[in-house]
Design a protein around this nucleic acid. Structure first.
Length: 263
DNA sequence: ATGACACTTTTAAAGTGA
């Protein structure tokens, strides 16, 4: 089974790229972030034509997440518990059944948090705390669980081209990295780091200042796996080639292959 | 220090992102 995550930065702007990449990568399950549209505006038919079931949790203008799966969903649920005031569309959960049993997938778009001297940063930290609580609860089931998405967290210095320039950024502040480490402390595995120790494994390059050409990237898109999932991890890849396409998203897809049979 | 770029929306300039 192959699962992937991609922040497309507007699904309607990126539809051609998305279709091309889906054909090339052929993931069974896909977590999309920043679809930037309401549910009715999602290009559902075009994606269903490729054999995917589609669930969306969108909103007008900003944010928005979607789950695509070649397997039918047993259940889906939108929204992250812990704050009834939070209206941002950033979290969508789905469950599928494989030959080996159920797998739960959480597609997430974690708040950016910048500028870090505004209330956006406490909102980010609170959201991370809610995600920690969610993960604690789900891990009790001892089932395969995969958190996939744009975490807006640079986990370590080797995940950014110039760590010194990012010290006070909401993506790299100590409190941000500590909150991410707390997730790992629950027993979740950062899938990319389970298979690859190299620096420079970037998933995002800013549109500005020729960041892609200079390889000024950061690693902020992640797949975190419960032990029951990471035990079956085979490989992880970053499809950085799509960043060189015309009018690309600023993020690229990350995928993981797991030893689960989909048939 | 600022803006650089790309996306959205009450199609113009502002908000958001990272």
């Amino acid at each position: 089974m192959r699962i992937a995550t991609w922040n497309v930065n507007s699904v309607r702007q990126r539809l051609e790229h998305l279709v091309s990449w889906l054909k090339e990568c052929s993931p069974d399950i896909v977590c999309l972030q920043e679809i930037k549209c309401v549910d009715e505006a999602f290009p559902r038919l075009e994606i269903e034509a490729l054999g995917y079931n589609v669930v969306t949790h969108g909103q007008k203008t900003f944010n928005g997440v979607a789950l695509l799966s070649k397997l039918p969903f047993d259940e889906t649920k939108s929204g992250l518990a812990g704050d009834d005031e939070d209206a941002h569309a950033r979290f969508l959960e789905g469950v599928v059944t494989l030959k080996q049993g159920v797998v739960r997938i959480a597609c997430l778009y974690l708040p950016n948090g910048n500028p870090a001297n505004t209330d956006k940063y406490p909102y980010k930290l609170k959201w991370m705390s809610r995600l920690l609580e969610y993960s604690k609860e789900r891990l009790k089931t001892e089932e395969p669980l995969i958190l996939a998405g744009d975490f807006n967290v640079i986990p370590a210095a080797r995940d950014v081209y110039n760590p010194a320039a990012w010290t006070d950024d909401a993506l790299f502040r100590p409190a941000t990295r500590e909150a991410f480490q707390s997730l790992l402390g629950l027993g979740l595995t950062d899938a990319l780091r389970a298979v690859n120790d190299d620096p420079g494994q970037y998933t995002f390059w800013d549109y500005q200042a020729g960041a892609w050409q200079k390889n000024w990237g950061i690693r902020i898109d992640h797949l975190l796996m419960s032990p029951q999932a990471s035990d079956r991890l085979i490989d992880v890849g970053i499809d950085s080639y799509v960043r060189a396409w015309e009018k690309p998203s600023d993020h690229v897809p990350v995928w993981a292959d797991l030893d689960f049979e989909t048939a």
